[in-house]
Computed example of a mutant assay.
Amino acid sequence: MAMARTVDKRRDDRVNVRLVTSHDRGDYPLTLLNLSNTGMLLNSPRKLRVGDMVLVDLPKIGATRAQIMWNDADEYGCQFVKQIPDSVVHAAEEVSRQNRIRPVPRRRAPVEPIVERDETCSLVLLMAFLAAVVAMVYAVQALTN
């Protein structure tokens, strides 16, 4: 039985760009890393959630709405609500080339090291406390008899 091959053409249509734009809330920048007619990859200094809508400013057409489909650390894959024309993708590529923005370093979420804690001190203090309690119980019993 022959296996059907699936091809992800999406990658072929992507154009690498480095465009700094703003979120629709306007209080922090977003950096577009790549762009196609149907979506984009962006970098955000603030956490966004899958399903959130973003409004970004693109060359030639301005405000364009997209939905966040996935994320990896501070990078977000977005799908445009309405497909954008090839001319916008090429204009973004040209603006990116003219701006020569340095590549955004790809950060990954830091992994906190597992620290083994020495519980010896806590156990010694607990044992001393319990010994003191037992001694007081015996002392109270001796006084009452």
Rank of each mutant, 00 (worst) to 15 (best):
M1L: 12
A2I: 15
A4R: 13
T6P: 04
T6H: 12
D8N: 13
D8V: 11
R11P: 04
R11C: 05
V15Y: 05
N16R: 15
V17W: 00
R18T: 10
T21I: 07
S22I: 14
S22G: 12
H23D: 07
D24C: 13
R25W: 08
R25H: 03
Y28S: 01
P29V: 06
L32D: 00
L35C: 06
M40Q: 04
L41R: 03
L41F: 07
L42Q: 01
L42G: 00
N43G: 08
N43D: 06
K47Y: 09
K47P: 09
V50E: 08
V50G: 02
V50A: 11
M53V: 14
V56G: 02
L58M: 01
P59N: 02
K60V: 13
I61D: 00
G62R: 05
A63S: 05
R65P: 02
A66H: 03
Q67W: 12
Q67T: 12
Q67S: 04
M69F: 14
M69W: 06
M69G: 05
M69R: 09
W70V: 10
W70G: 05
N71L: 13
N71F: 15
D72E: 11
D72I: 15
E75Q: 15
Y76F: 11
Y76S: 01
C78R: 01
Q79D: 01
Q79L: 14
Q83S: 13
I84P: 00
P85S: 05
D86M: 15
S87Q: 14
V88D: 00
V89E: 00
A91K: 04
A92V: 06
A92R: 02
A92I: 07
A92G: 03
E93F: 14
E93R: 11
E93W: 15
E94T: 12
E94S: 13
S96H: 04
S96F: 07
S96T: 12
R97Q: 08
P103W: 09
V104G: 01
V104A: 01
A109W: 15
E112H: 13
P113L: 03
I114K: 15
I114D: 09
I114F: 12
V115C: 06
R117S: 01
R117C: 03
E119I: 14
C121R: 13
S122Q: 10
L123I: 06
L123W: 07
V124H: 01
V124Q: 04
L125R: 14
L125E: 07
L126M: 15
L126A: 15
F129S: 08
F129P: 05
L130F: 11
L130N: 06
L130K: 05
A132R: 03
V133C: 05
A135M: 09
M136K: 10
M136L: 14
V137E: 00
A139T: 05
A139H: 07
V140P: 00
A142F: 11
L143D: 02
